[in-house]
Amino acid sequence: MIDSSIIDQIINKDNDAFKMMYQKCIRYVYSLVKRYVKNESDHQDVIQEIFARVFLSIKSFDTEKGDFKFWLRRLAINQCLQLYRQGKSPKQFVPIENANEIESGVVHALDELTKIDIQNNLSKMPEGYRQIFMLVVIDEYSHKEVGKLLNITAETSRSQLSRAKQWLQKKIIKIDKQKISFHGI
């Protein structure tokens, strides 16, 4: 994503390197922010915060030890969750009673679902579920790491993920049924 010479230039406070890095990384950062921050009006502010932190802490990044993309992703996600921790983004943990709504039946594969279907469903997912789903399933965080990031226990993270999956499963079944009935006509 970014080679070490650009990083060295940024450490030496080269403004052109700053700009170059921004332009190379902004799409990736934007896609992350869109996933974690629902409110579009917060996107610009969060992205500014992320890049400010990148520029300030890039000295701590060791090019030999890790991948810049991975480091940037961690930093960006952490910053997105900061909104949640500051209480700007309300927690929406779903009560246990509402979570146990598994519909029995065969679950169809997602093969027929489009990318837009997936994005729409994830955007509709309750905030508490969505964050944990994104962190664990998409960004491969462990439950222990999620616990630390969201100030919850690993058990809570596991149970929330399970419910998130159940929630998604239910939505997929609905879509699947709609498609079946459509094809049936």
Binding site: K19, Y22, Q23, I26, R27, Y28, Y30, S31, K34, R35, H43, Q44, D45, I47, Q48, F51, A52, F55, L110, D111, L113, K115, I118, Q119, L122, M134, V137, I138, D139, K165
Partner: peptide
Amino acid sequence: FDKIKKVMSENTDNQLPPELNWDNMESGI
């Protein structure tokens, strides 16, 4: 879920809103 992961993690083909251009962001950063 693997498919979702694939779709979401590779989802970087977003059209950038104009307010995210460097010129608009530099002072804020």
